[in-house]
């Protein structure tokens, strides 16, 4: 009788105690968290050497193929450019971004002859791997977005380096100093 009574109390206490853990902190590995399991103290582990990502083929294909130039690509390019490039290169691509105003070495303007003549591949390469003081953006800008940014850079170059005579009449009249 007494033993059964004791068992009952223990069971009740156990049930009551279970309520103290509200499970808001669970023993599980979460992205970017610290780990006591791995030697380097990180949950996120690099894949072993030689591992090929399942998406590698798709990424390579995206890199190799220039997407068709349309309004959607240009819009995407303008947005991505504003996020990742404008801090240094400036919204107009003249190299006068806000970070440059704080002392970062100024990048060249996209209207330079060297850059107007550079092939698209050059920009793809620089976005991914950097150039001079510029760090690579491969981790932040996926291949499809790199193509979109290249399209936007071309638009910036064209908008600042075009023969006035080649413009349609309406646009030519709108120019300051108004061509006839």
């Amino acid at each position: 009788m007494n033993a059964r009574w004791h068992a009952g109390v223990v069971l009740l206490l156990a049930l009551g105690g279970a309520g103290c853990d509200d499970m808001s902190r669970q023993h599980k590995a979460q992205d970017q968290a610290a780990s006591t399991f791995f030697a380097d103290g990180k949950v996120d582990q690099a894949p072993p050497p030689g591992v090929v990502s399942r998406e590698q083929a798709a990424r390579d294909a995206e890199l190799a193929r220039r997407p068709p130039l349309d309004a959607a690509l240009l819009a995407r390019g303008a947005e991505r450019y504003r996020i990742y490039c404008a801090p240094c290169h400036g919204l107009a691509g003249d190299g006068h971004g806000l970070v440059v105003a704080r002392g970062f070495p100024a990048p060249p303007a996209f209207t330079e002859a060297r850059l107007r003549e550079a092939p698209d591949r050059h920009f793809m390469e620089v976005i991914a791997n950097g150039y001079g003081q510029m760090y690579g953006y491969a981790a932040r800008v996926p291949p499809a977005d790199r193509w979109a940014i290249v399209a936007h850079i071309r638009a910036l170059q064209l908008s600042q380096h075009t023969e006035a005579a080649s413009l349609p009449d309406a646009q030519r009249r709108a120019l300051p100093g108004g061509a006839p």
């Binding site: 801090p87 002392g103 970062f104 003081q133």
Partner: peptide, 14 residues
């Protein structure tokens, strides 16, 4: 959280 590489995109110079 950005990797340190992201901070250094600017702070390698500034």
């Amino acid at each position: 959280f950005p990797p340190t590489h992201t901070c250094m995109s600017c702070h390698s110079q500034l």
